[in-house]
Amino acid sequence: MKSPTTPFWKIVAWVEDRQLKAAGFVLDQSDEIQAHGPITQEISFGSYRPRPIAETQDRTGLQFPELVHVDTFR
């Protein structure tokens, strides 16, 4: 099971005007969990922040070379 302070990431790819585009996001809930303590009621779990896909590659060891090239947040 993941630690509650482990960031989550996602990469979204789409075609716009016949061109591939992509964006990467990271969600880190550390601040919210620290501020609220154990979850006993519904709380906001934070928001996704745009991050370069190259950063996700560096942090995970996964490779997305085609998506890094079309990253909208690079």
Rank of each mutant, 00 (worst) to 15 (best):
A22Y: 02
V26Y: 05
A13H: 04
E66D: 03
S47L: 10
I43D: 10
G46Y: 02
D58H: 05
D58Y: 03
R51S: 00
G24K: 05
I11V: 12
I39M: 09
F73Y: 01
Q63F: 09
S30C: 09
P4Q: 10
F25M: 10
D31A: 15
S3R: 14
F45E: 00
V68M: 09
G61E: 06
G61H: 01
E42P: 01
K21Q: 11
V26G: 01
D28L: 04
D71M: 05
A22C: 03
A54N: 00
A23Q: 08
S3Y: 14
F73D: 04
D58A: 06
Q57T: 06
D71G: 08
R18D: 13
Q57H: 04
H36P: 01
Q63A: 10
L67C: 07
W14E: 15
R74I: 02
E16C: 11
G61T: 08
T72C: 04
E32R: 11
F8W: 13
E66I: 02
T60P: 09
S3E: 14
D58F: 01
E32A: 12
P7F: 06
I43R: 11
D17P: 03
K10E: 12
V12W: 13
E16Q: 15
R59D: 02
D71I: 05
F64T: 00
E32S: 15
V70W: 07
A13G: 05
P65Q: 12
A35W: 11
P7S: 14
I33T: 07
L67D: 01
V12T: 14
Q41M: 06
W9K: 02
A23C: 07
E32T: 10
L67F: 03
H69T: 11
T56A: 00
T72Y: 01
V15E: 09
F8Q: 13
D28V: 04
Q29L: 06
T60R: 12
Y48H: 08
W14L: 13
F73T: 06
A54T: 07
A54P: 00
Y48N: 01
H36C: 12
H69I: 08
R59P: 06
V26L: 08
E55M: 09
V70H: 02
R59G: 00
Q19H: 15
S44Q: 15
E66L: 09
Q19W: 13
D17Q: 14
H36A: 12
E42M: 05
R59Q: 09
E42D: 00
P50R: 02
T56I: 05
Q19C: 13
W14T: 12
T5S: 14
R49P: 00
P50D: 04
I53Q: 04
T6L: 12
L20F: 07
G37V: 05
A13C: 10
G37P: 05
V68R: 05
S30Q: 10
S3F: 15
S30L: 04
P38E: 04
H36Y: 14
Q29R: 13
P50Y: 04
K10D: 11
P52W: 02
P52F: 03
F45H: 09
W9L: 07
